[in-house]
Every structure is written in C-alpha cells, then in structure tokens.
Write a protein that binds this DNA or RNA. Structure first.
Lengths: 240, 240
DNA sequence: GAGTGGTCTAGACCACGGT
DNA sequence: CCGTGGTCTAGACCACTCC
C-alpha cells in the first residue's frame, strides 16, 4: 500500500481518525501542520483530505478547518461498500457466504426496437442474453438478466457465465471496465422473479440496473439484477 | 454561472459534449490544447475534466486521452438526480408534481436503547419523532419517519413539519447541512406502511435511510423514507 | 486582523499507450 | 520513441470564519 506521498498521508490520517486520535477536538490538524509533518506539498495533503471527505469521514469548512464527522458503529458501515465494481460475486466478497450460480437461460439475440428502448443498445446489433440465478447460503436471492454487446464482448459461453463473466472480460479479453452507471428501483415481481426467486410472502423485488462502459467509452453491458427484499443494502454519500 | 475559470471551462466543455461537438472522434481535446484555448492553467482544465468524469460524461485514460462515454437518451437520465440534497420536495422539483404533506404523528421523545441502536443517536438525548405522509398527484406515495436531535435542531413545530423542516433548518436556524449518508433497502411493508401508503397489490416498500450531519460534524437527523414500488429511481455512478 | 481552506499559476517529473 | 494523463512541488492570492 501507500505507494504515493498522497496515499501515505491518506492512510495515516484515516488510521488516526478511526483510532480516535483527533476525536476530542473534532478537528484535523490544519493543512500547514500536515505539510510539515509529512514533509510534502499542499497538493498531496489536500488530495488526501479530499479522499477522506469522499468517504464521509471528514468535512472541510473554509476559514474554519477540517471537521471530523461523528462515526458510530452504525454509521461506520456506510464507509464500507460505497463504490464497488465487479459483479455481485465480488460485491459480497467481504461477507463469508456460500455462493452458487445457476445459468437459467443463455441465448444470442439481435436487438429489436423494444430491447433497444430498454437497454440503450442500437437496433440490429447482436447481444448475448443471459439469465442467471444467484444462490446465497442456498437461498435463491438474485436473478441477473444480462445483455452483453457481442461485438465488444465476443465469445461468452454458458460455462463462462456459470463462473464469472467479469473475470472473462477483464482477464481473458483484457477489456477495461471504466464506468458503471446504476439505477435502483423497487418493482412489482414479474413472472420470472416469482419463478426463480425465494420471495416468500413478498411480491416485490429490488432492481439494480447496471450500464457498463469500456475505456473507449462504449457501452458493452446492460444488466438488471432483481433481488429479494430484506437482504441487500446500498449506500450513497451526498456532500454539500 | 461560471464564476471561476474552472467553471467556465467545465460549462463550455459540457455544452459541447451534449451538443455532440466532439462526438465523432469520441475524444476531448488534449489538456495542452484546452489550456491554450481557455488561456488557463492545467489545474483548472484538469478540475473541469474531473467534474465531467464525476458526472459520467467522460473517462480519462493515461497515455491515451479523455474519452467520451456514449450517451443515449436512456442513459442520459442517469445524469440527473445523482447527488441531490434537501428533502423529497426539492428532490422532485424538476418534475412538475402536485404535492402535499400530511403530518401523521408529532412527538418529542427521549432516545432509549432500542432507538439508539436504530438511529445512532446517544441514549438519553431528546429528539423530535415525526411521521409525515407525502402525496404526489394525490397518491399516498411516501411516509417519512424523522428523528431530529432536539438540542441541535430546536423549535420544530407541527406547522413547520407540514411545510418544510429543511427550509426551517437552513434558513431560520442557519444550520449548514454538510453531509448526508444514505442507505437504500427493500423491506417488507410493516403496519405503518400498510396503513398510510397506497401499496395496491404490493406488500413491500423501498426504504431510504438518511443520516445528516451539520458542518460541525454532528449528526442531527435520522430519517427513514418508506416509498411505494414502481415510482422512484435512484442513481449511482461507479468509476474505476 | 489573523487564521484557515479554496482557487489558481507555472512549472517538473513519472507512468502508461501507441508508434 | 513521442504524446498523453497522473503526481507533485512551490509558490500567490482570494473568501470565509472567528476573535
């Protein structure tokens, strides 16, 4: 860790904040002191503070200083899964979970008007249409409905889908996943959901829609992940 | 608008991107060209590009340049309600909606162990406990369950709750809302939800939990907003 | 008025991508 | 190898907070 000056400062400050070193005064040392302590430039110090602010640990007030945000065990968890990448597999890697994937459907189709409307893919291009059920601790908790642009992401097989498409994309195809845009909704459960998910009494699902772009700016994926209620949490940080 | 050099550059570039000026080559001009064009420093140019990247419009690749992300009408909507502040009132100010608030319950209580566990407020402090139903176009769509630290946010009345607590906090009390941490879940509907929301056939709700901090770093609010399915969307951007 | 973070300039060098 | 963005330094001045 800590390859850059900036990272060293960031890691050190974060440790101290979490250890409560600064907690009494509820303030970080002023920039000049940090510059002196770490023998670095203002740039590195400010960048480290910026990252701490992005994580919701501190807040800068012009003319006053850098304030620490109260962090209780409850609010602590916010600082964890803020912006994760990869599939749900990695998304839950921190929790120790028994995990399995069933490929329910695997097709290659041409995008028509309706599908284009839904996925934002151009009409006429070939896509892989894949449906996979994710089991956590034996529970049918998530169904992933994927559409991958077959020109940008060629050669997907059912076998790859059973393991990890993202692993295949990144390691075998060497595609860089640059940006993922996400939408979160609560939808009434549809036929597919009722068929494949253990909804119990519930008749709704969470729906996480992901649109992924490679580092050439091209959208290569549209995915809907329908998940059962009461099991998943998403976090977001808003700063003024 | 555009008070700073940085803002001028940012606004100009954003306009051009949305107008499609750069779309053919799928690239932004290189930094040096932008420095020349806007007669500014590299700092301002890079800051503008950073903001465009934060919005999901572009993506920087070291050694190659700044790539434009495909933006179709569908993915465009992602760029809207990314990080909004204020209550739901402002959250939906862009849509033209008939809007009303009913105060269902208004109490002042002392935080006990259970409530402390839930809200992360200290045991023993007084809080306002408020329940409000939000009607959009006459539909009972949202119930807000608020807890405000009565020491940090004194003097809330039912009348204020009916109008806008955030307006009162910011304009009358002059409190600066620095940071809001949010969690999103899908919960099975409870008694209060079934009583106050127009769930129709659905028996689940979305649950947006907000924890707000003032610019002294103190948590002054814990709120759960339970909302009906199929009506609300949340967005998130993840960058590598 | 003193102290603090926010903005900005003008450089330097490094790391990576493509040729 | 060259061109590009990423990191970093050493300053200057401004805007805001607090006494």
């Amino acid at each position: 860790m800590a390859k850059n000056t900036f990272e060293t400062i960031y890691e050190t400050l974060k440790q101290r904040i979490l250890a409560g070193t600064y907690s009494i005064k509820m303030r970080l040392p002023i920039e000049d002191d940090l510059i002196t302590e770490f023998d670095s430039s203002r740039y590195a110090v400010r960048k480290a503070i910026k990252q701490l602010a992005d994580e919701g640990l501190v807040y800068s007030v012009k003319g006053r200083g850098v304030v620490l945000l109260e962090h209780t065990p409850q609010t602590q968890q916010f600082n964890l899964n803020l912006g994760q990448l990869s599939g749900i597999k990695a998304m839950n890697a921190d929790r120790q979970l028994d995990y399995r994937t069933d490929v329910v459907s695997f097709k290659q189709v041409i995008v028509d008007a309706d599908l284009s409307e839904q996925t934002a893919f151009e009409i006429g291009i070939p896509v892989y249409a894949i449906q996979r059920v994710r089991l956590f601790n034996g529970q049918h908790a998530v169904i992933d409905i994927n559409y991958f642009n077959a020109q940008l992401v060629p050669g997907i097989t059912a076998e790859i889908a059973r393991k990890s498409i993202y692993h295949y994309i990144q390691n075998d195809l060497n595609i860089k996943i640059a940006v993922v845009k996400r939408m979160l909704r609560v939808d009434s459960a549809n036929k597919i959901d009722r068929e494949h998910l253990e909804l119990g009494e519930n008749n709704c699902v969470g729906n996480m829609i992901s649109i992924a772009f490679n580092d050439a700016g091209r959208q290569f994926e549209y995915t809907e992940s329908h998940f059962i209620p009461n099991e998943f949490v998403f976090t977001q940080l808003i700063r003024n």
